[in-house]
Computed example of a mutant assay.
Amino acid sequence: MNIPHRALTAADQELIDLARAVVDANTDGEDGIHTVGAAVRAADGSTHIGINVYHFTGGPCAELVALGNARASGAHRLTTIVAVGNRGRGVIGPCGKDRQVLLDYHPEIRVILPTAHGIAGVPIKDLMPYATAWSPDGGSTAYGDDASSART
Rank of each mutant, 00 (worst) to 15 (best):
V53Q: 13
A147Q: 11
S46T: 11
S135N: 09
G45M: 13
R110G: 02
Q13P: 04
A142N: 05
V84D: 00
G90R: 02
S148G: 15
A120F: 04
I51A: 07
A116G: 10
G90K: 00
G121P: 05
A62V: 04
D137Q: 13
N2T: 09
R89H: 10
E14P: 00
R77S: 15
I33N: 14
V101T: 13
A75Q: 06
A133K: 02
A25N: 11
V122A: 09
D44W: 08
G32W: 02
M128N: 15
R110D: 15
A133Q: 08
W134V: 11
A11F: 10
T57M: 14
P4K: 12
K125R: 13
T35I: 01
V65W: 10
V101C: 08
D137M: 09
G59L: 09
A21R: 08
P60F: 10
A38G: 04
D28R: 07
V82I: 04
A133H: 14
A19Y: 03
H55W: 14
D98M: 02
D44K: 01
L18W: 00
A42V: 04
I33R: 05
G96V: 09
E108T: 14
L103T: 01
T27M: 09
A11I: 06
H55K: 07
P123W: 05
G90A: 05
A11H: 07
D28H: 06
S46F: 10
A150N: 09
P123D: 13
I3G: 03
A133D: 11
A75G: 03
A147G: 04
N26D: 07
C61A: 14
P123N: 12
I92W: 00
A38I: 02
I112T: 03
N52H: 13
T132R: 13
G37I: 00
G118H: 06
V101M: 11
L127F: 11
A72G: 13
V53H: 15
A120G: 07
A133Y: 13
A10S: 14
V101N: 06
V53T: 12
K97I: 10
A38Q: 01
T80V: 14
P123S: 09
I33S: 14
M128W: 05
V53Y: 11
K125W: 02
H55L: 08
A70V: 00
T35S: 08
V40S: 02
D104Q: 11
W134M: 07
P107E: 08
I49W: 08
V82W: 01
R110K: 14
T132Y: 13
G88M: 03
R151W: 15
G90H: 04
Q13W: 05
T115N: 08
G59F: 15
G118Y: 11
G93H: 06
H48C: 02
L8H: 10
C61R: 04
A25T: 10
G121Q: 02
Y143M: 14
G139Y: 12
L15W: 01
D104W: 11
A43Q: 14
V40N: 01
A72T: 07
V84L: 03
S140K: 12
H34Y: 15
G138K: 08
A150I: 04
P4G: 09
P123V: 01
R89C: 03
M1K: 07
A131R: 07
V36R: 00
I81M: 15
A19P: 05
H48E: 09
V22P: 06
T27Y: 03
P129R: 02
I16R: 02
C95P: 02
Y143A: 15
L18K: 05
A25M: 07
A7Q: 12
A66S: 11
R151T: 10
E14M: 07
